[in-house]
Design a protein around this nucleic acid. Structure first.
Lengths: 186, 186
DNA sequence: ACCTGAACACCGTTCAAGT
DNA sequence: ACCTGAACACCGTTCAAGT
């Protein structure tokens, strides 16, 4: 990449990070380009889709979560390690409002730039889950898929201002289901 | 209302119901007016906001849910009655994709046309919840607020195509948290 | 009283024209 | 190689002009 292009790229990313943090994952791309003082086409050249931009913004987050999962695989209390990782995943997602819906869609769409990262993240959670299950610390009918869904629901709840006052309670309520023994569908 | 106005109104509603069922709660209002063969201003005259339109479309749903709650207050198994009502609420929400986010926002916004209906719905659930609680059939630290949040999360999960294959399981998983005894936040 | 649609200020996306 | 911004096809919302 040429030096001037590189500079544009870096600046674009910095501005995008701010704008997305402020306006959410569906922020106006036009607005980002404008605030970065860059032509709209330049943004599209570097990030052909919105997912591509989000993926770059979330790169660090995904790496951190993977590293954290690896660490937590060594923790003594497997149940606590699982919940802690879920909490961190939700907390990261909170940085970019609305990003969770895009991630959920991406995990079933191999074409999405976010696909691979989401799959890796789900796999990391699945490992922590199955380790807890092997010690009887999590219900055995849950799969990595379900854990990803639970994290998504928790992240979505956090995104709703109405629910903010009870966000911590709702987290503990919903995660408590991981420890119930049977599927009481009634 | 004049006869011609009434006719426009009815037709508009019928078309809106179809389009929203198909495209979700954020369907194009322009598209609705176009398909109803009515000027865009006519739609805005009858439904000054998107919430107003959704409220009219959901009128019947809200009434049904209220009636159902009343019936279920007489059921013998208070726990089963609660879960059944939650299931029906989620099922109704499913008719209009994305409507749950609007409802969640509306419940804290007295200006929204959906506000009152959402509050009534939450109150209906709260009654079923507290009846179950009085018999030890639901954890006592839950409030109507939390039940509404749980229903919202369940409805949101159902709206995500990725999660469809495990939707029933996820319902039973998350609702099982209602029966856990303590907040295991770990 | 009611209806219409142009007008305005926004989008996302593409691509011809420039350096 | 890279950048720009006009062009196109869409929005939501308002409101002057018509019946």
């Amino acid at each position: 990449m040429r030096a001037d292009a590189r500079k544009n790229y870096e600046h674009l990313l910095a501005v995008a990070r701010e704008v997305v943090a402020e306006q959410g994952a569906d922020a106006s791309l036009r607005d980002i380009a404008r605030k970065a003082e860059v032509g709209l086409g330049t943004l599209y050249r570097r990030f052909p889709t919105r997912e591509a931009l989000l993926e770059t913004l979330l790169r660090e987050t995904f790496d951190n979560l993977s590293a954290r999962a690896k660490e937590l695989m060594l923790a003594k209390d497997t149940g606590a390690a699982l919940i802690l990782w879920v909490r961190e995943a939700v907390s990261y997602a909170q940085n970019y409002r609305g990003v969770i819906a895009t991630m959920v869609a991406a995990i079933e769409d191999p074409e999405s730039a976010l696909h691979d990262s989401c799959v890796v993240m789900r796999a990391a959670g699945a490992e922590l889950l199955s380790r807890a299950q092997s010690e009887g610390k999590a219900r055995i009918d849950m799969e990595g898929f379900d854990l990803f869904a639970l994290i998504s629901a928790l992240a979505w709840l956090r995104d709703q201002p109405s629910f903010l006052p009870r966000a911590d309670y709702l987290f503990s309520l919903i995660t408590s289901s991981i420890f119930t023994n049977v599927a009481s569908s009634r």
